[in-house]
């Protein structure tokens, strides 16, 4: 690295022509697919006109951002988005690690495969379908829970008017859907651990819990940290489909369940405005950027090895 500085980019390029040639397709792809579209961010500051296009449309100052904040909802939905993502991040990753460890400790192949498949299955079910499940479990008149409650002589619970219940319901469904998928990555990391270490520990008399505590967990720590860093990058993007399909247009739950994406969708769906939607995306991206930088800096402080960059 120090050499490059001394000799400059041209010298480096001459020395490693083949390597640069090999990297070129990837670099071009990233430039075209990731960096070029960023110029579209100017839309957030434009009063978009179809006949003038993105760049020739007149400027609009910060007007496009107003709808997020003028009625005081901006802060609420930002808070909800961040809290939901943190909660979902922690639960789904934690459960994924636990399940990965359990699955790798199961030595009967058949049991292992079957349970892994069952855990992975929810990942393939669309949120639209999950939304229907949720409605048929929780609705007041014919829902599964209330049917049981009524049969046992209790008073039915009106879940759709209890905002407090929904963070837990959403978190549970999120974990149910993603745990299996995330655990695959941890299973791969655990499978990568040298068997000899575990065998040696077993011979020395380590119990299964000691082996997990002192061998498995430290070995998958880099994977865990990377996964969390990657997830943090998405923290301002609520999983739109999940929130929209589970909550729908149920206003009474919004204060507890509204995230930036659902708010923007609902506000603009009847009167779409490209500038205003871009403004919302711009806001999310800037906040995401700040959060990633901060989290990465913290990780770097603690252990430079694990930082993303």
């Amino acid at each position: 690295m120090i050499h490059t500085k001394k000799n400059g980019f041209v010298a480096e390029f001459k020395r490693n022509k083949a390597l640069f040639a090999m990297a070129a397709p990837a670099i071009i792809l990233v430039l075209v697919m990731q960096y070029l579209p960023m110029s579209g961010l100017v839309l957030a500051f434009k009063n978009y006109r179809y006949d003038l296009g993105v760049f020739r449309s007149p400027w609009n100052g910060l007007n496009n951002f107003k709808f997020l904040f003028s009625s005081g909802t901006g802060w609420l939905i930002t808070r909800n988005t961040i809290l939901y993502n943190l909660l979902n991040l922690i639960t789904s990753q934690l459960l994924a690690v636990i399940i990965a460890i359990f699955l790798t400790e199961i030595h009967r192949k058949y049991v292992k495969k079957v349970s892994q498949t069952i855990i992975l299955l929810p990942y393939f079910i669309s949120w639209v379908v999950v939304g229907v499940f949720v409605f048929s479990i929780f609705n007041y008149e014919t829902g599964l829970i209330n049917t049981i409650v009524k049969a046992t002589g209790g008073t039915p619970i009106n879940f759709y008017q209890m905002p407090g219940a929904w963070p837990f319901i959403i978190c549970a469904f999120n974990a149910w859907k993603w745990t299996g998928y995330n655990s695959v990555i941890y299973i791969a990391a655990i499978t990568g651990i040298d068997d000899a270490i575990n065998e040696a520990a077993a011979i020395d008399g380590a119990t299964i819990f000691q082996r997990i505590r002192y061998i498995t967990i430290p070995s998958i720590r880099p994977t865990l940290v990377t996964m969390i860093l990657l997830q943090v990058g998405r923290i301002l993007r609520g999983d739109f489909e999940m929130f929209y399909q589970i909550i729908g247009l149920n206003g009474q739950l919004y204060n507890a369940t509204d995230v930036i994406d659902t708010y923007v969708f609902r506000s603009l769906v009847t009167n779409p405005d490209i500038g205003m939607t871009s403004a919302a995306t711009f806001y999310q991206s800037v906040l995401c950027f700040v959060i990633i930088m901060v989290v990465n800096a913290i990780v770097k402080r603690v252990d430079e090895e694990y930082a993303l960059f």
């Binding site: 003028s70 909802t73 247009l249 206003g251 506000s267 405005d273 205003m276």
Partner: peptide, 22 residues
């Protein structure tokens, strides 16, 4: 446009539950 986006949301959040007697 800003006000309409906001009112649209308020109508769903506060208007509909009222209309449905919730």
């Amino acid at each position: 446009t800003t006000e309409i986006a906001n009112c649209q949301n308020v109508r769903q959040q506060y208007g509909w539950p009222l209309e449905l007697g919730y």
